[in-house]
């Protein structure tokens, strides 16, 4: 016998009120990262020994700049989703848990902004 209401079961949101949306979002970012990461690591390996100007020229291609911005935003989103799960699993005190989650989110936002703004600066400097 279930004590849940039929409406609650139909909504399927559970006690955390967001159902499986976090789980789904994590799978989606991981799927998107498979080609992005493969492209990035092979591109960087192929650029070994390139000087500053060659590196800037690489980033200044709109396709590369776009893919780099995608990699940074989706990658850091995935990283944030993962760190959130790790913190929720291992940090037990309510205050330290909330603080860790806030710190992790803040660091990810700052890193993401720094990375994306750096690419835009390189792109528009010409």
């Amino acid at each position: 016998m279930s004590l849940r209401t039929p409406l609650g079961r139909a909504r399927g949101l559970g006690s955390a009120k967001d159902g499986s949306s976090h789980w789904w979002a994590q799978r989606l970012t991981s799927l998107a990262l498979v080609p992005l990461v493969l492209w990035f690591v092979f591109s960087v390996a192929l650029m070994t020994g390139a000087d500053y100007v060659q590196f800037l020229e690489w980033v200044q291609s709109p396709v590369v700049a776009g893919l780099l911005i995608l990699l940074i935003s989706v990658g850091l989103l995935h990283s944030q989703q993962g760190m959130q799960v790790v913190i929720e699993d291992y940090v037990h005190g309510e205050a330290s848990k909330v603080l860790s989650l806030f710190l992790s989110l803040s660091v990810h936002v700052v890193l993401g902004l720094t990375g994306i703004l750096s690419i835009l600066m390189i792109l528009f400097r010409g």
Binding site: V59, T114, S118, I122
Partner: peptide, 13 residues
């Protein structure tokens, strides 16, 4: 490690 990647891009900028 992704901190190093962002540092590298910020250095290039």
């Amino acid at each position: 490690g992704s901190i190093v990647l962002i540092w590298w891009l910020a250095a290039a900028a």
